[in-house]
Simulated scan of single mutants.
Amino acid sequence: MTASTPGHACLVLGVGLRAHATAATLRGLWQQAKALLPAPADGFCSLAVLEGKEQHPALAGWRVPVLALPLESLRHQPVATQSARLIARYGTGSVAEAAALAAAGPQAQLLLPRRVAQDGSATLAVARRRVAPLDCCIAAACRAAALSQGATAP
């Protein structure tokens, strides 16, 4: 997969993964997402997952930072999808949407609600950061690092 280039829209992918998810499944979800985004998107800044999933084999081959977010940072995100099962288990209606929004930072915009893989093994959502282009990718990586070390979201 490719990272974004200077002048990009600073997109962050949020991903939810089950044990049997594959890299091909995630690539397929990204291809679907690209076709549905309001503006053409060739790449993205980072990929955000629930802490503990950052070493999942399906993430191999993505050439962007994989940001591992603690569950607490996902619980209060304003997600569009409301899955009763996920609310009961994680405290959010969509892990993918919440991860994308949390990693994208304050005032992030959910561009694409979660897409679900045909086999149900993975979900993917897209958010856009609302910051100056120069600090976009660096800020996202630093913010996620702070969150993964127990800091609270600003």
Rank of each mutant, 00 (worst) to 15 (best):
147 L>V: 03
27 R>L: 14
75 R>I: 01
58 A>K: 05
116 V>Y: 04
60 A>W: 11
21 A>N: 01
146 A>W: 12
150 G>Y: 10
46 S>N: 06
144 A>S: 15
122 A>I: 03
68 A>E: 10
50 L>C: 08
97 E>Q: 02
149 Q>M: 13
94 S>L: 07
125 A>I: 02
29 L>T: 05
101 L>P: 00
98 A>K: 01
94 S>F: 01
76 H>P: 02
115 R>M: 13
22 T>P: 06
19 A>R: 15
70 P>F: 02
42 D>R: 14
132 A>W: 11
66 V>T: 15
16 G>R: 00
59 L>G: 05
120 G>K: 08
119 D>S: 11
26 L>A: 06
40 P>K: 14
52 G>Y: 12
100 A>M: 03
46 S>P: 06
143 R>A: 13
15 V>K: 04
45 C>R: 06
37 L>T: 07
150 G>M: 07
4 S>F: 08
23 A>R: 15
17 L>D: 04
85 R>S: 13
114 R>W: 04
33 A>L: 10
139 A>M: 08
148 S>M: 11
85 R>F: 12
112 L>K: 01
136 C>P: 01
85 R>V: 13
65 P>Q: 09
55 Q>I: 04
2 T>N: 13
152 T>Y: 12
111 L>M: 11
142 C>K: 14
17 L>P: 04
117 A>S: 05
108 A>C: 03
12 V>E: 03
115 R>G: 10
84 A>D: 14
